[in-house]
């Protein structure tokens, strides 16, 4: 009888993730997780705007770093973040290899939004920003927790100290701008990659993505700015 065409070995997870679409779906799923994380992060940090000398903020921060569920989730967060970045970079490398000879004259702005084409660049900028950000706040917190006998940790004070330097505030703004464009494209892109495109819901998702990006980034940007300019004390 006739032989059948090649049948992909469907059930093996390795096979599922070996394709570009499989990898990309991981980037999208991890992206959505990170989007949710940013909501929590921004929500907690917004406590500084209560103008209570950082009391509420420090309490919540302390809860986050002591509660074991949160600490477990934090571990997950790092795994997701690394997966997001690594898989995206693997795809980016393949994407770049797909056009070994570049166009000599190209007008990409005629067919796509500029920021949609720079996700990887924004991603790398965000990673660099994160390294700075974590070394400023995260590492110190952990050191205190594990090596210094867990004293009362005045994260609010640390923030005030860090954001008193104009150049750091400027770097934060750069990082946040990169994050803004990354989110503006990434939010709706993630849903598309997960196969969610519906005539009724796609416009809603797109609108949500825009509002989300604007609000989250404004919130984050207000923090260093308001400390630097002393809008909160």
């Amino acid at each position: 009888m006739l032989k059948q065409p090649q049948i992909f070995l469907l059930m093996k997870w390795g096979n599922f993730f070996s394709t570009t679409i499989g990898k990309k779906s991981m980037v999208a799923a991890s992206g959505i997780f990170l989007i949710l994380f940013l909501v929590v992060h921004a929500g907690i940090n917004a406590c500084i705007f209560l103008n209570d000398g950082g009391e509420t903020f420090n309490t919540v921060a302390s809860f986050m770093s002591h509660n074991w569920i949160m600490r477990f989730l934090e571990l997950g967060l790092f795994v997701v973040l690394i997966a997001h970045f690594v898989q995206a970079m693997i795809i980016e490398r393949k994407n770049r290899a797909a056009r070994p000879v570049k166009y000599h004259f190209s007008q990409p702005n005629k067919n796509s939004k500029w920021y949609s084409r720079y996700m990887a660049i924004f991603g790398i900028l965000i990673l660099l920003f994160l390294i700075m950000h974590l070394s400023q706040f995260f590492i110190g917190t952990k050191e205190a927790l594990y090596f210094e006998g867990d004293p009362y940790h005045d994260l609010y004070g640390e923030m005030q100290e860090v954001f008193s330097h104009g150049w750091i505030v400027a770097l934060y703004l750069v990082g946040l701008i990169a994050l803004f464009w990354h989110l503006l494209q990434g939010f709706q892109s993630a849903f598309h990659t997960l196969g969610l495109s519906h005539k009724k819901y796609a416009p809603i998702i797109k609108m949500m993505g825009t509002w989300y990006s604007v609000i989250i980034i404004l919130l984050f940007a207000l923090m260093p700015l308001s400390m630097y300019f002393g809008w909160i004390s």
Binding site: T20, K24, I91, N95, R99, N111, K113, S189, T193, S197
Partner: peptide, 27 residues
């Protein structure tokens, strides 16, 4: 390469094939 949802393909497609097809492929 892989899709990064810039949707340049839809804009340049001479038959106006929608990127909804890419979402369906992912789905």
């Amino acid at each position: 390469g892989n899709c990064s949802n810039t949707y340049a393909c839809e804009a340049e497609c001479p038959k106006g094939i929608s990127v909804a097809n890419i979402a369906r492929l992912n789905h």
